[in-house]
């Protein structure tokens, strides 16, 4: 494992911890898109179907369980927790996220590394992850004032994606037979989606003002 991959996994882990911290201690999920969280729960469930068929390492297994468990529990909290669910911006979070799933499934059926159930589900999870942040970005744009934790959550997610791109470049040059076109293309698309948010985030940080996205 290289430093970019490890740093990428850690920023991903921190992003989840920031979100859980917000939900557990402040009992609020204001500014967080349930649509995006539901998509992530589906992404991890469909990607980690190999959890019981392929053993890679203890690290890999534990991280998979953390991402599965945390994404499902975040959805549960936002939907069912009697205090947390009241802070959910339901009227603002209107992205029709189910419409994203069908094209991703069709694309996975057409473009995959091998036409097997696990491989098609794996490709589907990558395509869906690439666009899963969209409802969250739309919600951020609608919310006038973005609190620090929400901003940090999206920033950490973006950092995780950028570090994974560096990890792929590093692995491509240091490992033989390391070629994953599906992962790369969908990963780069996903990283580009964050670029716009990053721009405004750094502007507000530089000018030391509260983050506000243009309407």
């Amino acid at each position: 494992m290289n430093i970019f991959r490890l740093a990428g996994d850690m920023t991903h882990l921190f992003s989840v911890l920031v979100l859980l911290l917000k939900i557990h201690t402040i009992k609020s999920c204001a500014g967080i898109s349930l649509k995006t969280q539901e998509l992530y729960a589906i992404v991890f469930t469909t990607r980690y179907l190999d959890l019981f068929t392929t053993y890679i390492s203890l690290y890999n297994t534990i991280m998979k369980l953390i991402f599965l468990g945390s994404s499902i529990s975040i959805v549960w909290y936002m939907r069912h927790h009697k205090v947390v669910r009241r802070s959910y911006d339901k009227d603002q979070d209107t992205f029709r996220h189910y419409l994203l799933m069908l094209p991703c499934l069709l694309l996975a059926l057409l473009i995959n590394e091998k036409f097997t159930f696990l491989e098609v589900m794996w490709a589907f999870s990558l395509y869906l992850e690439a666009v899963a942040i969209l409802p969250q970005l739309v919600l951020l744009q609608r919310t006038r004032n973005i609190d620090n934790l929400t901003g940090q959550y999206v920033l950490l997610l973006g950092a995780y994606r950028a570090l994974y791109v560096l990890n792929w470049i590093y692995r491509y040059f240091t490992e033989e037979n390391y070629v994953h076109w599906i992962t790369w293309v969908s990963g780069i698309v996903q990283t580009l989606l964050y670029a716009d948010f990053f721009y405004y985030y750094f502007q507000s940080w530089k000018n030391n003002v509260k983050l506000q996205l243009p309407a």
């Binding site: 991959r5 392929t54 890679i56 991280m63 991402f67 590394e113 037979n177 070629v179 994953h180 992962t183």
Partner: peptide, 10 residues
């Protein structure tokens, strides 16, 4: 996945 090309990323 082929040898050396496992889905070992998260």
């Amino acid at each position: 996945p082929t040898e050396g090309n496992l889905h070992d990323e998260l």
